[in-house]
Design a protein around this nucleic acid. Sequence first.
DNA 1: TGATCTCCGATCTAATAGGTCGGACTAAAG
DNA 2: CTTTAGTCCGACCTATTAGATCGGAGATCA
Lengths: 157, 157
Amino acid sequence: MLKISKKADYALMALQHIALVQFGDVTPGRVVNTKEIAEEYNIPLELLAKVLQALSKNGMIESHNGPKGGYLLARNASHITIAQILESIEGPLGLTDCSHEKDGDFCMQREHCNIRTPLLKVQDSIYQLLNSMTLQDMMGGTPLITIQSPSTQGVNR
Amino acid sequence: MLKISKKADYALMALQHIALVQFGDVTPGRVVNTKEIAEEYNIPLELLAKVLQALSKNGMIESHNGPKGGYLLARNASHITIAQILESIEGPLGLTDCSHEKDGDFCMQREHCNIRTPLLKVQDSIYQLLNSMTLQDMMGGTPLITIQSPSTQGVNR
DNA sequence: TGATCTCCGATCTAATAGGTCGGACTAAAG
DNA sequence: CTTTAGTCCGACCTATTAGATCGGAGATCA
């Protein structure tokens, strides 16, 4: 349960790779093209291309056209959070369909629904977790993250 | 992203309803049948039945056959966690396919995968969160039973 | 014994994830 | 200024799964 998609998976791998090349390497500032990443991690080329396009469109990376072109991180790895990456690919975080319902767009159960509020609290906690971790944290030694339980924050009402 | 299934949604609603009837009501100990829940929350009857069967099979509730039959919580609401409920319906928590891979059952990217370890940490944090919240916590108006100190969080079993 | 339940497996279909294809555009190198 | 290697973009196909349905078997109690 709560699985992220393969595309999101690929996005994380690709960004981590780009970040490594750009910062940790002997050739800082080098652009990375789709093919290089696809071959390194055994990712279908065309699918990865779509993922990178989405990341580019959402401002995670910059694309450079033409030969010797490729991708660069749009900003420092410490300013790109896991939440931002995942949302670029899979859309906004939401445990349930009703997470982002506008007024007058209710689900069939909304009238007597008793779980919406507590689930929103859980969702918020998960969001904080994903947003507190950055690409930087995924490079090399990763620190253990802690999460605040909503049950300590007054879930009821 | 990270949406839980409708079935899991229904499971949470149903259990919350059963818990309310059983403990907070004027008729404590009363059994609750599938139809009652389905009508109250506009859930397709047959689908809800399957959900309740799964919950019963996984020890969340007890089923009582025959007329005047129905379901009862298998144990106190404070001892049923959200994680247990969700896993009864959707299977074990896992952000990626490789979360529960046995030896020799690797994904195509495993060889150079750089995100597996950090994602497992995230996953563990989410699990702790879902496991720290109980059915009791989802019943409005009722007092919380377990209050976790923030300083004790993030500790692995 | 009949009515009313739960139980259980088979099945259908609608949505989505995963993956593919083909062509348009762009920029650097010859 | 032409060629070529790369990104860009959108349509498309397919396999899997979630969501929902159906029919009958077995249990229980009046």
